[in-house]
């Protein structure tokens, strides 16, 4: 179920840990699997379990414990707006409202075109640059209605590579 590249990456992760501790590579293996498939289906989790020689339930436990794993399909871009205290004090609710309004989706929902999923998350450790959000791999800070609109346009404009 995984490409050579992903398998090689997982194999590299395994070398970081003692040889009898393959389980240590589980979080990484799930991340790599998710990067390739977009989300963690049951079949994919079972595959990872086999790959690392773990009982499937241990994989489900981990996949459902950590918030960065998606157990259902999500949009091409995940907009994760921080709603914790420092961002909240700096207007994170308004950021969410703005995005929800512009995209026509509520929290946890994906736009009809499958481009955006809107989520509220807890503190992302960038409190001094509040309000902020994470989009895919990247942080966007000191958000304003204008910067949000520009970002949406850019992401929608096809250029996926916002790095």
């Amino acid at each position: 179920m995984l490409s050579e590249k992903s398998l090689a990456e997982i194999a590299r992760e395994r070398t970081k840990y003692p040889s009898d501790q393959a389980r240590s590579a589980l979080l990484a293996a799930l991340r790599i699997a998710q990067e390739e498939h977009g989300y963690l289906s049951e079949a994919l989790m079972d595959y990872v379990a086999d790959l690392l020689g773990l009982p499937a339930i241990q994989v489900y436990e981990v996949a459902t414990f950590y918030t960065m794993y998606d157990l259902k399909p999500v949009g091409r871009h995940k907009l994760c707006v921080c709603g914790s205290v420092s961002c909240f004090l700096n207007g994170s609710d308004a950021v969410l409202a703005h995005l929800s309004d512009r995209l026509g989706v509520g929290l946890g929902e994906t736009t009809a075109d499958g481009v955006f999923t809107l989520q509220e998350v807890e503190c992302l450790g960038a409190c001094k640059d509040a309000p902020m959000m994470q989009v895919d791999d990247r942080y966007y800070e000191n958000l304003t209605p204008e910067s949000l609109d520009a970002l949406l346009a850019q992401l929608r404009g096809g250029s996926d590579d916002v790095r």
Binding site: Q21, A22, L26, L27, A28, F65, Y66, T67
Partner: peptide, 27 residues
Amino acid sequence: LHVYRGAGAYICGEETALMEALEGKKG
């Protein structure tokens, strides 16, 4: 020395939860 990437759980900042996570378990 290696980097270990967490996967989204504040509790992993607690030192023994962090060790559990590093062992591939729930934090």
